[in-house]
């Protein structure tokens, strides 16, 4: 039998934009939308990239941190913070006993973590997740976020490595700011079933402000 691939939770909304699709980390995603020059321009003004395809591993329970550390993954010491827990891998501490590990474009820790048989581990339970995840970049990104989120997300207010769990466009979401290839970007994760809605709202505002969709290829070429 043929190995199945996953589809991005945003795919239905993206296909209206006639993107060039491809498979990344086992998921069908939009690689590019328009001419690369235009996407680069969008990226600089307000670019929105769907990175739902990044591999993730989540764990919850009193011994979750201990279990991750045993697997060689560093974890943030405080709640609502994130760090690079392994090369190319973000570790987000979502609560006292809950963590989300996400491989970035170059990371591969999640594959290893999924490979561990965890069924007999007490007080550390693997959490099946399906996230819609986005990267927002550009000079107008705070303008966009000021419409979607009631929190102060400016540099002075959102500390480095801080993680906020808040409402974005009326739905629960997690947000961090990070530096990506020297560019300051915001990362958003939300429930995958809201992914299409979130994508449509982000793109609607981005286009109003002179930005738009940015494919994976442009973002990580």
């Amino acid at each position: 039998m043929t190995e199945l691939i996953k589809t991005s939770p945003v795919i239905g909304a993206q296909k209206k934009m006639n993107p060039i699709m491809g498979v990344h980390q086992g998921m069908e995603v939009a690689l590019s939308f328009v001419d690369q020059k235009i996407e680069k321009k969008h990226q600089a003004i307000l670019g929105v990239t769907d990175v739902s395809c990044f591999a993730r591993f989540a764990i919850k329970g009193a011994k979750a941190a201990e279990w991750l550390e045993k697997q060689g993954i560093k974890t943030p010491e405080v709640v609502n913070a994130w760090l690079e827990g392994a090369p190319g891998t973000m570790v987000l501490r979502l609560g006292n006993t809950e963590f989300l590990v996400e491989d970035q474009a170059t990371g591969n820790a999640c594959t290893k973590l999924h490979a561990f048989d965890q069924s007999n581990t007490q007080d550390a339970y693997q959490v099946a997740r399906a996230d819609a995840a986005f990267i927002l970049s550009g000079s107008e990104v705070l303008n966009l976020l000021s419409e979607l989120c009631v929190l102060d997300l400016r540099d002075a207010a959102l500390l480095n490595n801080a993680l906020v769990m808040t409402q974005i466009a009326g739905i629960s979401a997690t947000l961090v700011r990070e530096s990506l290839a020297g560019e300051q970007v915001y990362r958003i994760w939300c429930d995958s079933t809201y992914g299409a809605y979130m994508w449509e709202i982000l793109i609607e505002i981005a286009q109003e402000l002179g930005g738009g969709a940015v494919g994976l290829t442009c973002r990580f070429q």
């Binding site: 589809t7 939770p9 795919i11 239905g12 296909k15 419409e147 466009a169 009326g170 739905i171 429930d191 995958s192 079933t193 809201y194 992914g195 299409a196 809605y197 709202i201 609607e204 505002i205």
Partner: peptide, 17 residues
């Protein structure tokens, strides 16, 4: 303001459409 009508879709939604 802008219309925010948060709605949830399954991954099969586009096929249904």
């Amino acid at each position: 303001g802008r219309s925010f009508h948060a709605h949830r879709l399954t991954t099969i939604h586009a096929w249904h459409q």
